[in-house]
Computed example of a mutant assay.
Amino acid sequence: MLGPPTAESYGPSAPPATMFDSMPGYEGTVAGGGGFLPPPMPAYPGPQPTPGPEQPNWNIPSISEDTAREAFMLFASSKCCYSSAPAKDGVITNMEAFNTYRYRLETFTESRSTEWSNEPYSGQTVDAYAQPPPGPWDIPANLPSLFVEGRQCIKVPYTSSVKNCHSCVGMGRKPCKDCVGAGNKLCWVCNGSGFRIGDDRCYHCNGRGRETCNDCNGQGSRMCEICNGKQQLLVFINLTVKWTNNTDDYVVEQRSGLQMENLREVSGKELFKDSQPMVYPVMGFPDPTVVQASQRLVSEHQGKYFKTSRVLRQRQTIELIPVTKVTYTWKGESHIYFVYGNEFKVSADNYPATCCCSVM
């Protein structure tokens, strides 16, 4: 007699991609396992120019010597191998401001995609073709706060149907891979001989040469992990909504010697903020490189995101980041460190008093 059919004897019973062609509003959008859904045309008018900040707000007072020293001491104390002596006893001989501008453009987008999904069927509502499903951009989603990223998966109404599980062919169980469906396997102690040494019977398999398969408890099959033994699947279109805050920065070169990467970690004094459905490049700012960066990034974001996703909001800001280069002497030698950002962070690449910590 022939054995029972295995899952490999049949093709998968999950819905074919062509089924989407008959699903109103989803024709051809998920072929190949996932579909890009172009956003609807924006309903808001084009962006309008917004005046830049006024001249009096562009200056930040230099930090005091006490502030610079306190920041340096906190920096040294945060390093386990740094002596506090240079920070505490070093003599500050010069402080030079290298304040710089940071322009930031944020484009907050929403994208939607669809794909087949399934879950074990346990009596859920089956509503496929009861009426046309809502369009992918007509389905309400829980929008997070603006410029806060998020993700939500939504089962599209009127797309759910029941199918036999394609993994176990509706049997609820699958042959155990460890014992190939036999329920037992070769004893690993005696390698199937039934004896250990000479005529001594193998205590592990009691001389049988085979042992019960632990993976399936001797049954030869295991519950299907796809349908959880339910034999059937609820198959439906799954809509994934993704909110992304796409951000680009431009920092004006301050020529102090401080690495530009350091400035990514700090904040500055906000001079200008403009938030609209679509922003217009900054105009009238005294530093022409900031104006050029704004024009370039606004154009790039329009090319990148307006055609592939729904743009919910844009925001552009200009910050003035304080940077102070501090020169000090310690033990007759001159050294420098930087204090930067509203957080008074410190960078000191060549700290003069470090030790090598090691375990003897």
Rank of each mutant, 00 (worst) to 15 (best):
M223V: 15
A7E: 14
G172K: 06
P140N: 07
D89V: 00
C81Y: 14
G220W: 05
D249I: 03
S309Y: 03
E333C: 10
P281L: 02
G257L: 04
Q302R: 12
V162G: 09
A130H: 12
N164R: 09
P322W: 02
S117T: 09
E253G: 04
C81N: 15
Q48H: 00
A68C: 13
S347I: 06
I336N: 02
S256F: 01
G198T: 10
Q231W: 03
T324S: 08
P352W: 10
G135T: 06
Y121A: 07
S358G: 10
A293K: 01
T289I: 05
C357V: 15
Y103G: 03
P175C: 12
G341D: 05
V148M: 11
V91C: 10
E27W: 00
V235D: 07
G257F: 01
A7H: 07
Q314D: 02
Y305A: 01
L105R: 02
G32P: 02
Y82L: 04
V290K: 01
T354E: 13
Q55V: 13
K163R: 15
P86N: 08
C81Q: 13
Y337E: 03
E106V: 09
K174V: 15
F36T: 04
P12Q: 12
P24H: 05
F36K: 05
V126L: 10
G52E: 03
L233C: 08
R222K: 14
I237Q: 10
G181V: 12
P286N: 00
S275L: 05
S299N: 11
E319V: 06
L258S: 01
